[in-house]
Design a protein around this nucleic acid. Structure first.
Lengths: 156, 156
DNA sequence: TGGGTTCATTTGGGCGTCAATGGATTCAGT
DNA sequence: ACTGAATCCATTGACGCCCAAATGAACCCA
């Protein structure tokens, strides 16, 4: 029951390699392949083990093969995705597509999201982080006093 | 049925370690992992055993996966959180993110909150404590009119 | 009740292991 | 043979793990 948690930042070397945080590699469980897909909602890439693509395909399977949504989703999970190899030292090399979509240059912010994780250009991540925390605060206020933080489930 | 109670202050050593109060460790029940999340509402960190994340995820599970609130909450509980190891002597090491968010430097105030506890920079905690006591007083006066003693403040 | 004693938590530090990082070397495709 | 990629190696530094001293609190007994 391990998940991708926390966020850290690692440098990209001259050869374009980045270390995937050890904690994340542990969650991946010895897998030396990393499945990635460009995010639709922002300049980030979502990544995880092969089961990620399985989940995506499961969803695809529930759609009508002749619908537009099928067409779109199918492209999304296959065409805008990649299978990156994790080398012996736990590093990956990001392709041009990913760097372009995310704006990643010489640093990568790894962000845990539970069953997958994201890779961001640190600056863009900072902005996202700030906005999201603000939204969380609003959300909490909307939900009322009973909704804050962990304390939210005050029903003890 | 033990809870996190009272507040104490412990020093951070050169290597960045702090002892988690023994009473708190007892409540954690032998777990050597501490789940933490940055608070949205203040410069503090909320912590507890792994069941905390389960509770948070349970709540996540009730949300619409495509809603913004899901996105926000998911970030909050996964991206701004950490799983800290408690060493053999009951100490933890706070990461850079936590120190930055809380302002913690060489001292940590541990504050019991029932089913979880908080970690504060002592000075900030003092302020929070003062404000909160004041609010509690107002609250009590308001509630006093309608009736209950100490127990009276239970309901929402 | 005062004093001494024991036990437990806290705290400081040493040391080995693993992760992260930079660079060299081998390999493969063109 | 040349370019880019996949492997392999070596260095550095952080972190986990262990032991020991120091601090303090609970306890017992005279």
């Amino acid at each position: 029951m391990s998940r991708f948690l926390a966020n850290t930042q690692n440098p990209v070397d001259k050869k374009g390699r980045v270390s995937v945080p050890a904690a994340f590699r542990t969650v991946l469980g010895g897998q030396n392949e990393l499945y990635t897909m460009l995010s639709i909602s922002g300049p980030t890439v979502e990544a995880g083990g092969p089961q990620l693509i399985q989940a995506a395909e499961a969803r695809l399977g529930q759609m009508d093969p002749f619908s537009e949504e099928y067409e779109v989703w199918s492209y999304y999970i296959h065409g805008d995705s990649n299978m990156l190899k994790i080398d012996g030292d736990g590093r990956i090399t990001l392709g041009e597509e990913i760097r372009e979509h995310t704006g990643i240059d010489d640093k990568v912010a790894f962000v845990g999201r539970g069953h997958f994780f994201q890779m961001w250009e640190p600056g863009k991540f900072k902005i996202y982080q700030k906005e999201t925390r603000m939204k969380a605060l609003e959300l909490r206020q909307r939900l009322g006093k009973s909704g804050g933080g962990i304390a939210g489930k005050r029903g003890h």
